[in-house]
């Protein structure tokens, strides 16, 4: 017997929650308990009084599963709102990566040249290394990292996606 899995599409969810102890465990636990995917998850406090946090979750699944994820998140007691950013039309997504590249000679020059093309900033340098800071969609960050692999990539740190809907309305 084979176990079947269904293909799905990528969704970015913005979740506003009470900033209380254990909330992140509740959310990630919901995903693991119900077998949903998390591709990335970011969280930070967003209100002046530190009462609310915004969690951005990149997930994937068939439409019915995405609906379930939203409904399941929404019924957690400390969750205020859940928005599927893909649903509301256009949105902006950004991710930051710090990319360390080590090497010398041509590779070093090539790395710097490509960083320029990608508008990555040099935030630290030694005679034999750079740390680049790159901001953009996850795709762009992926592509940059792939190129850096050819130029002496030694370490990467990524934030995961934050996203917000275009236009004047709040979620």
């Amino acid at each position: 017997m084979k176990i079947h899995t269904e293909a799905g599409e990528r969704h970015v969810l913005a979740v506003t929650v009470d900033n209380e102890a254990g909330i992140l465990a509740k959310i990630t636990g919901l995903f693991s308990a119900r077998g949903y995917n998390i591709e990335s998850l970011t969280v930070a406090d967003i209100s002046a009084d530190h009462a609310l946090s915004r969690i951005t979750i990149v997930t994937s699944g068939p439409p019915a599963v995405i609906d379930q994820i939203i409904a399941q998140l929404d019924r957690l007691v400390p969750v205020h709102s859940v928005t599927d950013l893909a649903d509301g039309g256009a949105h902006v997504e950004r991710e930051i990566a710090l990319v360390k590249v080590a090497g010398s000679g041509d590779k070093r020059i090539e790395a710097l040249r490509m960083a320029d093309v990608f508008r990555a900033k040099v935030v630290d340098t030694t005679l034999s290394s750079f740390i680049f800071e790159i901001t953009g969609t996850s795709d762009k960050v992926d592509r940059f990292i792939a190129l850096m692999r050819e130029c002496g990539l030694v370490e990467v740190g990524r934030t995961g996606v934050v996203a917000i809907a275009r236009g004047s309305e709040a979620v």
Partner: peptide
């Protein structure tokens, strides 16, 4: 009463 039960 539980929206998550619907279409689950």
């Amino acid at each position: 009463i539980d929206r998550s039960s619907i279409n689950k």
